Amino acid sequence: MKTKNLFLTAAILISGLVSVNEVMAEGTPANADNVTLNIKFKPIQTISVNPSQKNVDIEYYTKDDYNNGVSVTKEDHLTVFSTGGFTVSVQTNGDFTKGTENIAASDMVVLAEAGSDNTSGGTFSSVNLSTTQTSLISSEKGGSELKYNITYNNEAGGGYKYIDKYTHPDTPESIYTADVTYTIVAN
């Protein structure tokens, strides 16, 4: 009878251990717990103009300049950081002015191209300046420290269109000014 009780006790004990192991295998033991860890990415876009190129001069020095217009390219003029696809737009605050005189903003065409060490690709547009934001650069991919060369093309001033814009003897040069703003948004 003792052997029978011993076998019965052993069978109950083994059955209990199997049941406890099954319960522990199905859930987390009471002395541990789980956490769901998420990695979340938020959109970040920044744009900056090269600090040494904050003033861009389109200068008419020669008869050919007045006849053909003037174009100036600024290397690595813009730097972009974006955590994904982006669009850079350009706009002006109005026409180029000197006192009450003006030159149409649309006479200036802005063009972009990839700058140094920029292999991110993208699409580039030729933009006649206006007070409306217009897409200049569009990219499906983001990147860090993406450099862009910008050309300010004033060939529309050719054909001696600005022949009477210089006013002498008031100043040694006549300067017409407008502010240009670059804006970046996520695609």
Rank of each mutant, 00 (worst) to 15 (best):
K161Y: 07
S89K: 05
E75T: 13
V88M: 05
G94S: 01
V90Y: 04
A10H: 01
Q53F: 05
Y60L: 12
V20F: 04
P51L: 05
G16D: 00
K54G: 07
N93Y: 00
A112M: 12
D170R: 11
V49C: 00
G159C: 10
N55F: 12
G122D: 06
T171P: 07
S126W: 04
S139H: 04
A25P: 03
P172T: 08
P172Y: 11
A104F: 04
I14W: 00
E145A: 14
L111F: 10
S71E: 10
Y61F: 13
P29D: 13
N68V: 02
Y61C: 11
S135E: 07
G142R: 07
P51H: 01
S144N: 09
K74Y: 00
D117E: 13
F124Y: 14
S116V: 11
E155D: 15
S135R: 07
A25F: 00
K40E: 10
I12Y: 05
P169S: 12
L6D: 12
T73K: 04
A114T: 15
N31L: 06
K42E: 15
I14R: 06
T73C: 04
L111R: 15
P43E: 06
F86V: 01
S15W: 02
V180S: 03
V20D: 04
E59L: 11
D76L: 01
I137A: 00
L17V: 10
T100D: 15
G115Y: 08
N118V: 10
A114S: 14
D57E: 15
S125I: 03
D117K: 14
S144E: 13
T131M: 03
G16W: 02
L13N: 00
S15T: 11
T46P: 00
I184W: 01
S116I: 13
N149H: 10
T183C: 00
E145W: 12
Q91R: 03
T46L: 01
Y61G: 11
L13A: 08
K63Y: 15
F124T: 05
E75M: 11
M1L: 12
Y66N: 02
E22D: 06
N31W: 11
G99D: 07
T62P: 03
K63T: 12
G142S: 07
Q53T: 08
N118H: 10
D76S: 12
N128H: 05
E155R: 15
S82V: 00
N50D: 09
S144M: 11
D57V: 15
A25Y: 00
N187A: 10
G69I: 03
S71A: 13
V35W: 03
G158C: 14
N50C: 02
E155C: 09
G16T: 08
I14A: 08
K165C: 14
P51F: 02
N153P: 09
